[in-house]
Structure formats: C-alpha cells, structure tokens
Design a protein around this nucleic acid. Structure first.
Lengths: 151, 151
DNA sequence: CCGTATCCATTCCGATACTG
DNA sequence: CAGTATCGGAATGGATACGG
C-alpha cells in the first residue's frame, strides 16, 4: 500500500503505468480483450483464474477507464466489457511484450502464436523506439527530462 | 506456482513475457538499468525497496539472462549489473509503458520525465504497431496464428 | 558498502459455496 | 451464466540483524 502510493504519485510515467497495469492478470485480460473477448465467462474460461479474482480485476479495469461496461450485444441479461480508447492504447505494450517473448523465451521447435496483419497476413514489424526523424534509437541514444503536463 | 508453470509453458508469448518480467520491481530495475544504474546500492537508493528483495530480483534477472554480472568498473570489490542484449531488447516495452503513462495517467500541471533523443533533444516518436508496409495497425487490424519456432 | 538470512505482516489467489 | 462472500494457503515484500 505504501509502495503503491509511492509509485502512483511518482513522476516517472513508467512507474505509474506499472501501478495501473503492471499485473499479470490485468495485462492478460487486456490481451484477451484485443482478441475481442467481452464476456465474464469467456475471460474466465480462457484465463483460468478464480472467478472472484476476475471480478476484482474487471472492476479495477473499469475504474481505471481501460474497460467500459455495455449491455450484452446478443440481448442476454449480462454485461460486456469492452476496451475504451485508453484501453486500446495499451496495444503497443502488449505487442512489444509479445515480440520480446517470441524472440527470447521459446526454444527451437516450440510453437507459439504470431501476430499478423489482416491485409497481407504477414507478421507485423518489430516494434522499435524511433526519433522524430525516424531513426531507430537504442537506450543509450536517449535521455530524460522533467516537464510539465499541458493536457 | 501452479499458475506460473501454466504461463511459462503457455504458447502465448505475452504470457511468457509476463511470467519473466511482468513484475513491478523487475521492470523498474530494468528501467533504471537503462539509466545506466549498475550498482546494488544505486538500485536500492533509487527504488527504495528492501535489500533482500533487491537481491532476489537481481538474481532472477541474471538467471533470466537480462542482466549480467561484471566486476566493478571503478576497481572496488563489488559487482556491477549490466544489461545483456536480451535486456536491452526490453527497451520498447519500457518506452511504450512510459508513453501510455504520460498520456493517460497525469493530470494537467503535473510534471513528469520525458524521453528525448540525444541528437535533437526532441521527444521520441509515439510507438505504434505497424505492418511490414509501414501502415499503423489497430488491434482489430490484426489476428494471431500458431507457428513453430525456427530459431 | 554489498549482500544474505530470519521473521512477520500483508496481499494475492484459488476453492468453494451461495445468490440472482 | 454472471457475480459475490468467505476462507485458507502461498507468495510477496519490508524491517532488521548479521557477515564479507
């Protein structure tokens, strides 16, 4: 709790982001939401986590503004959880995690799921950090400076 | 433990990546390593976590191959922890977390640290997912397919 | 200054049972 | 099917004390 408060008020955006979504279940829920999963039971089935935990995580995500609750599209009595713009903006985080995992965490011959674009059915580009001019940047090509947020 | 094993053997690279580095402290240690922090005491001072915890996290990161241990560059008796190529490859993950945090987690007037490139001292590009042809892709423009890892 | 070992509080999570 | 309430075990992390 003390730690959470620290991070949440920290001026490092990385720390704040981790405070919000730096949680295994939360990121996996968002990953599945990108796969168009919307229903409680569907999340539950795919993730295999306890239902009470899922309840809590979904609630957190709604409070954070990452998911929004909608009436079910099929007319059933239940809710659906859909990504907001803020939630959809997590996409590059999930994809960069994915690409790093693909690259370093699989042995020869193991199978894994790849991300393809719908148009060409080709793998997406490997995400990289780029300068305004488009040059790929390594960690040592960058530095940090404190500024004031102007909306 | 049961959960960890599940995720670690899962064929989803996102899940595996989270299993490895989906931990607040771990990612914050890597973030500081990008800031050229190398020493135990320096990590400790900047992160403010308990020393025993730091010991464990550093050991994990070394085992994973994200950090490597070196003799101290200043001739002192102690170790230094430096990023490997695998560790440096985490850069886009940290930067995308940063950009998402900047965008959604700060109020007007709050200050935060920004990432600039050394050459032009301009903010880096906002990270996005792109097709081979360079087109920006939204989550719904993509799909997944299972393949076999060929080195 | 670096790192480890022990102890304890808290948190997290799964299993289960229950409600609508 | 969707969601809540309770409980117990496991893991996490902080404080502290100790050794290199």
């Amino acid at each position: 709790m003390a730690k959470q408060t620290q991070l949440a008020h920290c001026e490092c955006p990385v720390a704040r982001a981790l405070e919000a979504i730096g949680d295994r279940w939360v990121l996996l829920i968002i990953r599945d939401a990108f796969d168009d999963v919307r229903r409680f039971g569907e999340f539950h089935k795919r993730l295999g986590l306890a239902r009470n935990v899922l309840t809590i995580k979904l609630k957190q995500l709604v409070e954070l503004g990452i998911l929004a609750v909608q009436p079910a599209s099929d007319g059933s009595a239940y809710k659906e959880y859909v990504l907001t713009d803020m939630g959809r903006a997590v996409f590059p985080i999930v994809v960069s995690l994915r690409q790093w995992g693909e690259r370093y965490l699989f042995e020869q011959g193991e199978s894994y799921s790849q991300l393809l674009d719908n148009d060409q059915a080709e793998q997406v580009q490997t995400i990289s950090v780029r300068s305004r001019s488009g040059k790929a940047l390594n960690p040592e090509d960058c530095h940090r400076r404190v500024v004031r947020h102007e909306g």
